[in-house]
Amino acid sequence: MTTALKVFLFSLLCSLPAWDLAWRFLNDELGANPVEFLEHHTGDWTIYFLLLTLSITPIQKFFKPNWNRWLMPMHLVRRVLGLSAFGYALLHLATYLVFDMGLSLTDSVNDIIERPFILIGMVSLILLIPLAITSTASWQKRLKRHWQTLHKAIYTLTFLGILHYALLVKADLFQPLIYLSLFAILMLLRIRFDS
């Protein structure tokens, strides 16, 4: 199988949750609060894919798998995972803007200004854009050593994404704390290996 085909199939696999949501949307299977359903699921998948992206380096350092043999080159696996996270974040934002804000600019601006957790989510998504754009090999070459510095922003952005979730919860912080713990573990594994 060519690498291009593998990348295509792997991307398709990562997009399955989105197809599931689309199917439910078309068949009226999103439950009592369809917009909340879409927002929660696209938000969850964003965080899952961010955490998966962050787990590539630890997997490499612990297990040194033969990426090429099992799947495809490591940097391509990570790129597809990272771009999937970005895709789900965009769907998340689109749901919010269309159904929560009714595409009203004034409502959106007011909401962003007044609600800290909306602001945090919005800022982290905006900051993901340059990472998504520069994820290609040609950008990597062009930016040289700056590329890695830029892409380390993913650490902060993942944390902000989890914070965005934690701040909207009414009382039960269980799920955001699980995400935060996974994030902390993935970060700790890095510290040990970098030193």
Binding site: A32, N33, P34, V35, E36, F99, D100, G102
Partner: peptide
């Protein structure tokens, strides 16, 4: 507010 079952507020 969003009535249950509805997409719009």
């Amino acid at each position: 507010e969003r009535p249950l079952g509805s997409f719009f507020k």
